[in-house]
Amino acid sequence: MKLPAFDYACPRTLEEATALLAEACGDAKVIAGGQSLLPFMAFRLAAPGLLVDLRKIAGLTGIEVGDEEIRLGAMVRWRDILDSAALAHALPLLPAAIGHVAHYQIRNRGTLGGSLAHADPASEFPCIAVLCGASVDVVGAGGRRTLPAGDLIAGPMETTLGDDEIIVAVRFPRWPEGRRWAFDEFALRHGDLAIAAVAACYDMDGPHIANARVAVMGATDTPQRVPEAEDALNGRAPGDDTFGTAAEAASAAIEPTEDLHAGAAYRRALVGTLLRRGLRASCTRQREAAE
């Protein structure tokens, strides 16, 4: 569990960083907080010849809540998200989900760019990015591009990033006033990887749910939207019946993963339970806010 030997570079510009990555032809890894990469290297599941540290590159931090969108720099740490009063107001779902990330020390170092690039199916940030239709800004040796978060994640621990590409920011569209949201997660201990988690948001069109979005993580091999559950919500009045139907739809729709701690049937059931509970809490929260 000792790190294999590697070279280390700490460039000051994105140009330098992408050039180093391009030069290494796949034998380099970007390091931000190191909370996933270093354990991987210690277990020798990864042995990159070069680590390119982003810590001295300007412009990768900061949370900007604009009128149209919220921009989060790739080096924003979990701690920054949890401490942001602006985010708590503009996108409360995000800090609610990030509160489930690991432990104090890890939240002080782990970054959202690192989490996206690692693409662990049990990670909260990619799930919220997928749910909210966030855009990911990426810079490579050949220039910049922007892609939807859902297109970035190719599979478990797998992205569509090129060898020379670095995530620089994630942009979330602003929410309309009054959007309701849900997040619930089941882990064996607080901070452990999610066995299953669900995230949802919806608007109210009169007495009916509209623009419903539901996403699942932890229980599936990638964070993913669940259209069947969204259909079960849209156009219906919020309440136990609707939520129960949506929960059943979500349970039925997903293809659950299996591991040491949970089988597929258990994960399937958990997804339904969590969605039902989360949606119910979204109404309670609304009522409490109104009072």
């Binding site: 277990f43 064996l188 452990d192 040491l260």
Partner: peptide, 24 residues
Amino acid sequence: LPYGDDGALLVGTLADYLVPLATD
């Protein structure tokens, strides 16, 4: 400490071997 049918030990980290935490 679960084992596979081939006798491989399937746990190698404290992420999978769930000791009680002080807050649990």
